[in-house]
Amino acid sequence: MTPASKRFLPPEAIARIARLELRARAVVEGVLAGLHKSPYKGQSVEFLQHREYVRGDDLRRVDWKVWGRQDRLYIKEFEEETNLRLTLLVDGSASMDYRSGALSKYDYAATLAASLAWLALSHGDAVGCAVFDEKIRASVPARTKRSHLSSVVDVLETSRSNRPTAFGPVLRSLSETLPRRGMVVIISDLLGDREGVFQGMQFLRRRGHDLVLLHVMDEDELTFPFEGPTRFEGLELPEHIACNPRALREGYLAAIEEFLANARKRSAAARCDYSLIRTGEPVDAALVQFLSRRSSTAV
């Protein structure tokens, strides 16, 4: 761990905090100590910046003067004057139960989601949350009240299942039910219905949502460090394999690498902000990294 990273709370420390809300608070307090600008962009009376038009942008936000002068379509972005609608979609499927350290992938994802909710609510933004597997198990609509955080936390803490994931129907359903455009943050390991994820993201994107994909992976899943005779039993799949892991490591890592590359590529295609987050990293560090990226790309 570098000296800078020592500022962050290690997953082990977070794990010792039993309540998710307190975890989120601990994470956010650390984040806020070094972050003062809102990372969220939206419509506002105060001009923020121009950016090139991309397909799907609202034509009402095209700066026609610039078009008249330069014959190029630019979009005017303003500081949002109204609350941002942040929707947190947390994967609660069985595969998220894997843990190699103090936190399972779901624990990590929930902590991350609660922290984001805390930050958004503290900026007066509306935060909604849903936990899903093959369907949405629980959700709360977006609210701006600070007390809404407890509702979000309740959803995150109580809505677990051991079902496999089905992204497609969930995201399609969500795109139809979200009343306004906003930011949709998907926190998942993407194991399961991968094609459905990206199709669903296409739906959301067409609805004008700003998409963020936080891809949570356990360190073991990325490095496959196992040794000795091991029987692997699927958390979501019914298959099992009895093997010497190092014999399969090379092939596994190649498959994982291909999987991550595909996720990045498909995310970019869907104009989704993709971040790979390792559960071994401190949650606040992951949050700061994410927020920094968002700030640097904000219009």
Binding site: Y98, P229, T230, E233, G234, E250, I256
Partner: peptide, 27 residues
């Protein structure tokens, strides 16, 4: 040793299966 395999509940099973399919003969 076949009887003494340690059990691991594994999420990324599909990649492991893929690897096994690929290297079964060699292994």
């Amino acid at each position: 040793n076949l009887l003494r395999h340690r059990k691991v509940q594994w999420a990324a099973m599909e990649f492991l299966l893929a690897s096994q399919r690929k290297f079964r003969t060699r292994v």
